[in-house]
Amino acid sequence: MTKFFTSSIGQKFFMSITGLFLMMFLVVHLTINSLLLFGDGSLFNIAANFMSSNIIMKVIEPILALGFILHILYASYITLKNRMARPQNYLVAGKTNVSWASKNMYILGGLIFIFLVIHLANFFWKVKFGTVAAISYDGGETELHDVYALVAGLFKGWWWYDVLYIIGAIFLFLHLTHGFWSAFQTIGWDNNKWMSRLKVIGYIYSIIIAGGFALIPLFFLIKYVV
């Protein structure tokens, strides 16, 4: 087992596991966020406050952070090592017919990481450490963070934030189209029957996740800005 952690397949295994974990997180994240599209924001605020105060989520939060960190660290290490496997490059770059995303996962990952930093600064940081207006839906008995106002304010106030978030979703889409199927391939799920199935499921998943995340800024953009 000790060799497993340092072997190329073992390292890829961690990429796969952390990737799958992050993909599950995306489902939860989108589910909550989709509430932004309904009503006056109370649904979203209740859900968001539940998520940030829930004891389980408090445990999961650092695990999630660890998932991100491992995914990024392993990716960096593997990419570096893979580059070393070809000290001299070809004059004519590869013309093999493969998906662009599959060849550029690290670049896509890097772009998503930049987006993630902005995203965290926009919301997570403010909710966690900053000041967010309070709101109450039960006549003042319990006060909740008005996260909805934070989100809506951002998306209503600066149109280029909407564009940025849509671009972020596109990067995520490309990353997921390869990542979803690839994660299963790496843990050995695949065979010649399941490969095409997983690729289709992966596409559907990527469209739903990235489409869903893109829909929110688009929604605010169309509704308030345009």
């Binding site: 390292q11 890829k12 090592k81 070809r86 493969v98 998906s99």
Partner: peptide, 10 residues
Amino acid sequence: GFGSCTNTGA
């Protein structure tokens, strides 16, 4: 010294 597989399918 071979690299690892990133499933590009090339």
